[in-house]
Each structure stands twice: as C-alpha cells, then as structure tokens.
Amino acid sequence: MQVNPRWRQDFPVSCDDDTYATRREFMKFLGLTSVAFLVGTCAAAARRWWIQLRGAQSRPIAIARLEDIPVGGHKLFRRPSEDDPCILLRLGPERFVAFEQRCTHLSCPVHFNAANNQLVCPCHHGFFSAEDGRPIAGPPKRGLTRLAISVQGAQVWVRFGKDEKA
C-alpha cells in the first residue's frame, strides 16, 4: 500500500495543476494583450503628432552663409535639437539640399561623397542620391528625410518638421 508522503500533504498542488491555464484565463490574457497593443499604438501616434507639432511651430533658421560652402561642399549641423544631425549640401552655385543625416536603415550617420554625388552610409554600405535622398543601393529601403531649404540674401535657411519625402 502506497503511503501519501508528508510533502504531498503540505503541498497538495501538482505541477500540472499549477501551470494549467483555463480557456477563460487565456481569453483574459488575449484581452489584456489587445489593450497593451492599443496603448503602444497610442504612445507611438502621440510621438508622431508631437514631432509634427514641433515642426509646425518652428521658424526658419539660418544655418550657413553662401560663401561658407563651396560648390560640391557640405556642412553638418544639428537642429532642431542636438540629437538631430543634419547635412547641408551645395550641389551647384544656387542649388542647396539638406537631409537628416541618419541612415534610414539603422540610423548611422551618412557622409557626402562629392565625386559620386552620393550620400554614403559606412556601416552597411547604403547609398543615397545627393539630389533627392532616394536610396540607390544597399540595405536602406526608404529615402533620407529632406529638409525644406531656402536661400535669402547671403544665407541658407532651413525649416524643420515639414513632411517632405525625398
């Protein structure tokens, strides 16, 4: 005759019973997961709206004088905050373009290659057109975010937050 051991009397819950999930519990888990997705989506959307709002409120900023940048040259700057690296390119005497300097693949800073008229990401060899920021080769699928540029007087002005896809 098998005697019920003492430990079983002290801990009568079996391992299977302990980990068993009823259908009802599983449904509640699904419901809470749904709420978590909703909260995450709202948070991401709020961040997107905040970025747009911040851009809409920004005023144009002078970032360079014309004589500072030779044709084929570039200038790095950080706006609207120190965490936002951007690059201004002078492609012709009167032709300026500016992009966010983050590669759209994994956010490495891109560099200007004037010889090929390309922006190059050294991390994974992504290449973008300097004309419009579209991806030419490598892993990036999206173009660089282009900034709105204007030349007034002897200065180049940039306006941030404009939704302008390269």
Binding site: F37, A44, T145, K165
Partner: peptide, 13 residues
C-alpha cells in the same frame, strides 16, 4: 497597426 505607427515615427514621408 502598432508596427505601422512605429514606422510613421521614423518615416516623415
């Protein structure tokens, strides 16, 4: 939908 919204943060287009 969550991934689309995350994508919208990085892609201003």
């Amino acid at each position: 939908l969550f991934t689309v919204t995350i994508e919208a943060i990085g892609d201003r287009g």
